[in-house]
Amino acid sequence: MRTRARAFFILFCTQVLTLVGLLVHAVGPDWADAPAIREQRALVQHLQLTDLCLFTEARYTRHPSQADLSTPFQDHPVSLEHFPSGSFLPAPVSIRRVDVALD
């Protein structure tokens, strides 16, 4: 039984050390100043970019910060969001405050 208890403690310690190692990896180097971040930040500044290239399926998902205020409802005022990536972007707070259910 003691052998099993020791084996568990070894497994537990290994897992804890791995997690600590990963957390050190997360905070260790200055990620905010990593070459890839610096490069992309310079591009954003130089090209005056406003959005991340995450969802290219529609114009308002490609540039969500530049989209018209009512873009997700562009077909008619109570239409459901059309594209899958729209489900990652919640409606603005002002719309969520409306008491009447829109859909």
Binding site: P35, A36, E39, Q40, L43, V44, L47, L49, L52, C53, L54, T56, R62
Partner: peptide
């Protein structure tokens, strides 16, 4: 390395 801002540009 810059794909997150430039992939479709």
């Amino acid at each position: 390395a810059s794909e997150l801002v430039s992939s479709d540009l």
